[in-house]
Every structure is written in C-alpha cells, then in structure tokens.
Nucleic acid binder design. Sequence first.
DNA 1: TATTGTTATACTCTATAACTATA
DNA 2: TATAGTTATAGAGTATAACAATA
Lengths: 157, 157
Amino acid sequence: MTRDAPPDDVLSSRLGYLLKHAYLRLTEESARSLAPHGIDGRELAVLAVLDSHGELSQLEAAGKLGIDRTTMVALVDALEGKHLVERRRSPQDRRKNIVELTTTGRERLRDAEVVRREMERRFLAPLSGADATLLVQALQRLVGAPAGSTAQASDPT
Amino acid sequence: MTRDAPPDDVLSSRLGYLLKHAYLRLTEESARSLAPHGIDGRELAVLAVLDSHGELSQLEAAGKLGIDRTTMVALVDALEGKHLVERRRSPQDRRKNIVELTTTGRERLRDAEVVRREMERRFLAPLSGADATLLVQALQRLVGAPAGSTAQASDPT
DNA sequence: TATTGTTATACTCTATAACTATA
DNA sequence: TATAGTTATAGAGTATAACAATA
C-alpha cells in the first residue's frame, strides 16, 4: 500500500480506512524492528503461542493463531529452516506433528519480544497512557478476546 | 484467514493481532452488508472521495486514498464497468483522466453510505458510546488523520 | 526530461481441493 | 470413514518496471 500524507475527512471518519491503515503502519514498523532478528511479527506470534502452551500439534497451533492449517505448513517450514522450532511425530497419534521451540527459538523469542513491546510502545506514543489502554481494551472487546489479560498496553514491562 | 474462537492471552495482548483481526472482521462485515449494492468498501471509499472533491484525476484520487496509481486503474475500470463513474480526458492536461461520479454513482454512494454507517454502528455495538468515540479518535491520531472530523463514531446520524 | 495512465509481471497472504498416512 | 499434514493451485491485493501519450 502507498501511505503518504494524512487522509482527508471523508476517509478518517471511516472505521475501515482507520483500521486498515493502523494495521499497515504497525505491520511495517514491526517488520522493520524485527528484521535484525530474522523474523516477522507473524512468526514471532507462532513462537509465543508455542512457548505458552508446549506440546501443540500444527493444527492446534494454527487454531490458536487463527490461521489455516495449509498456511501453517509454510510457516513451520520457515521457522524450522531457521532452527527456531522442531517438528516431531507424536507417538500417541502418528498423524500429528508436535511443534516445539528449540533452545535457539526460545532465546530468539525472548529477545524479539523485548523489541516488539518497545515497538508497540513507540507506535502508541501519540496517545496518553490512559487512551492507549482504552484502545487496546476496545480492540480486545471487538475481536472477542477473553476478559482479563489487559496489561502491556501502556506498561512497557 | 480463519477466525474462530477467541484468542488466548499471548495473542490478545498483541497490537498486531488485535488490529489485524479487527480489520478482518470489519472487512468481512463490510463486504457482506454492501454486497447487495454491488460494491465493496474500497470502491465505496473511492466514490466518497470523488464526491467530496470533484474533478480529480486518477492520480490525485489515488493519492487521497493511499493506493497506488496502478491499483487505481483496475479500481476505476471496475467502477466504470458498473456505470458508477466516468473517465474523461482533461482538456487542460491531456495526460490526465478526470474521474467523475455518474448520477447512478451518486445515488449508489448515498444508499451505500447509509448501509456502511449502520454496519459500523453494529460493529462498535460491544462498546459504550464513549469508548467507541475514544477508539475512533485514537485510531485517527495513530494514522495521522487531520484534527477535527470526529463525528460518526457513536453518532449514527 | 518528467508525468499520467496503462500493461505486464511478480510477490505475499490466504483459501480450496485433493493426495498420503495414519486412526 | 475421519483426521493431520502436505502439495498444487488459484485468487485477492499490492508493487515494480517499462511503455505510450503528453507536457
């Protein structure tokens, strides 16, 4: 997308326009700041999900991330190529691939998460801390996120 | 994208995840509610921009919308095919295509805008009016929208 | 020389269908 | 029969490069 000067009124009152461009800006910033770590935001999210649940099959991980199982294949291929995750057949059900973080993957996750949080803090900098928190909470409600889990917005741990 | 059950904590605290999925949901809702009118949200935005400025060349319109000029070609092709806009060569600068709404286009714009506003109101329904307004204002600041122009959020005209 | 519209082309992200190996 | 992973393929949406007409 081409994002240049500020939009005019007709557009800045449209939720679609606002969400799209906010998303695009964040994605760009995310890519730029994570690039030195050799991953993008999508891959980082995979690592984070694998870390917080362990023992996930590809399909289970895909479900949590809201991505298709066919998309998951390429994602895991890429992460495995970077030696950040490993696949192994589940002994209980040999149809399943258990995906696990490698030691390198766990380290990469830790480092990249620091960068991500700092990037989000920069991104939200135009807002007051209270407004940033409200934005995140509002988005969580719109997306249907679970209750609780609200920290991190203006809390650059 | 596959969007099913609510995400878990690791994801719902990520701005990237939240913006992406909020955007996807809105886009889906938008497509669904505008479908009977034969256009999508992107085309509607083009009509709105043409209506509020008149006498725009393709490049100027593309600039306001934040899309590439090559993308604009196909967009105008589609709208012209539906008889919602017309192209004509600018007499002042024959390199330029002036894009204008047809009478049908103006009517379609009016009808579709009603539908869009109602769709956005539904989309924001999980939030209080105050929170909805704050969300829109926060997004405007993040996207770098001009000051003022804040109505419509929880003000279903 | 520079700009506008256009075309051709390619790349990313995603989804659908069909195959395989397991269950 | 059904499920997990995979592959092939196709469709959006977008960008880059190159060309024609015009300035």
